[in-house]
Design a protein around this nucleic acid. Structure first.
Lengths: 187, 187
DNA sequence: AGACAACTAGAACCATCGTACAATTACTTC
DNA sequence: GAAGTAATTGTACGATGGTTCTAGTTGTCT
């Protein structure tokens, strides 16, 4: 976040901050009004800039959504990686993350689901969404080497998240953890 | 499809066919263009009627989406119930249904996911979506009485469906079945 | 300082959409 | 067959939104 515009490699360095700012505003809009609420004007207003700027950095609305999903996926990846690197009980911390989809993290989780649903219709986005799931799989592999157990773990994580978003409120981290653990038991 | 308009109870019998026709057209649009593609005009065109008619039967666009989700949930419920009533191996047949999200049933599954995602933002729709999941739970209860196993089963079903929609193509019914069975093993 | 590209602002064009409304037709009831 | 209600049509208003265009500004390099 220090100085920018040093043009180390030639060009296109100056606008990176604006770009990030626009993506951030887009995510705010998605969290508040859903993916359907994303318009050039809404994003611009949220970012406090003019509409022309958003179209300057993202020629089409689709580009904007793509960038937003990519950003979300990256953030998620970072989060998972941090858990994997530092936690003494990754599954517990991951369960806490999933459980947070009920409370303060609800809007975030909703945004994730909407963007991910969007990805199903855009072949270009599927690799991004797949990488996402792959991170969860990585986490599961800390505990088991059984490919099927990993697959079950990932599926449960996704399913639990959906359940939490539809059933309002209640989401006990310990409960989520117990359900997730079920994928990992020896047999 | 026989005679209608007999007005057995007084009124509002004639228009039921139209109503169903409009909902059907709505689902066609959702399958083809996603929930975002649902507009009065698009639906009307799909149904071969005028725009005024769709607003006559569904005052607001929201009503239309609500009706569409309800219809989808009902169809799904019927399907599950039929499997439960007639199959000698419900989990196998259910696995086949899930696996079909990859091939010919892809558009249907996509529509289901989009509408279900929509439900997360509308409190009024959550009961509908929840009933949906409850049917899958019913099916699981044919095989186990362990509440946690049921919960795991439902979560896996949802997660597998999402995975199938994002990974293109491959979805072996036998594989899906094996993963689902994993929720039901004794321990 | 001058040239050149990146960046920003404002406005406008054109299409689409939700919705309302008045008018017309079909059907039911008495 | 007249009256009344449901169903249907055509049309239009107001608003929103994607995208384009033009002009002006800022920053960078030589």
């Amino acid at each position: 976040m220090g100085d920018e515009g040093t043009t180390t490699d030639g060009r296109r360095v100056r606008g990176q901050r604006r770009r990030a700012q626009i993506i951030e505003a887009t995510l705010t809009v998605v969290r508040r009004d859903g993916a359907a609420g994303v318009t050039h004007r809404a994003v611009a207003k949220e970012a406090g800039i003019t509409t022309s700027l958003t179209t300057y950095y993202f020629a089409t609305l689709d580009d904007l959504l793509v960038a937003a999903l990519t950003e979300v996926a990256d953030t998620y990846t970072d989060h998972i990686r941090r858990i994997m690197d530092t936690s003494d009980d990754p599954v517990r911390d991951f369960a806490a993350l999933v459980a947070a989809s009920a409370g303060e993290g609800r809007e975030r989780a909703l945004a994730e689901r909407e963007l991910s649903t969007l990805a199903a219709r855009r072949p270009a986005l599927r690799p991004v969404a797949r990488r996402w799931r792959e991170r969860v799989a990585d986490l599961a592999r800390l505990r088991t080497s059984d490919p099927r157990a990993v697959e079950v773990f990932v599926a449960i994580a996704e399913g639990l998240c959906a359940a939490i978003l539809l059933d309002e409120g209640r989401a006990d981290p310990e409960h989520v953890r117990a359900v997730l653990e079920r994928a990992l038991v020896e047999r």
